[in-house]
Design a protein around this nucleic acid. Structure first.
Length: 152
DNA sequence: GCCAACGTTGGC
DNA sequence: GCCAACGTTGGC
């Protein structure tokens, strides 16, 4: 099993939205690195931190599970979508998405709190200039954050 | 609102 | 294939 971190702006889609929907298609990713992670490395059953970005309190806010491996992202074919891609015909899709399922909400673990952990000093989401919306998390990092979540 | 960092685009 | 210009991300 692999571990991941998914960033989302809560004004666009929050952990509460996922709690309501239970399952959602993680469409709209238009970055090749993030796409490759979804398409090539994610498996059903993988777990992910749901991270809120560009908001009042950026940080980890919940846990989700990959419940369907990658398949072509419908929004790339939809002329009316902001994610439409004229260079991606149906017979040669460029963008993929997985489905994620709600596991639970957590207290918000802020970036400052994450940065204070020595065990997380190499965590990709904390690296300077990181803009990738999907990043891998190591088992050790996952365990460290889970431990943090048990505290208040 | 600022600005550093990064990905993409396009001229050459 | 290089690289400057540009647009976007996202923390602060």
């Amino acid at each position: 099993m692999n571990y991941w971190l998914f960033k989302s702006e809560p004004s666009a889609y929050s952990v509460d939205d996922l709690a309501r929907d239970r399952v959602t298609a993680w469409t709209g990713v238009r970055n090749y690195q993030a796409r490759n992670l979804m398409r090539d490395a994610m498996r059903a059953g993988d777990r992910a931190f749901f991270h809120h970005s560009s908001c009042e309190e950026p940080g980890i806010a919940g846990i989700a599970e990959i419940c369907r491996p990658a398949y072509p992202d419908e929004t790339q074919f939809d002329r009316k979508s902001r994610y439409y891609d004229a260079g991606a015909p149906r017979d040669n899709p460029r963008w993929f998405n997985v489905d994620v399922k709600f596991v639970r909400k957590t207290r918000v673990v802020t970036l400052a709190e994450l940065r204070a952990q020595k065990a997380l000093k190499n965590m990709q989401v904390l690296k300077r200039g990181n803009r990738l919306s999907i990043t891998p998390v190591t088992p050790a990092e996952w365990a460290c954050v889970e431990h943090l979540l048990e505290k208040t």
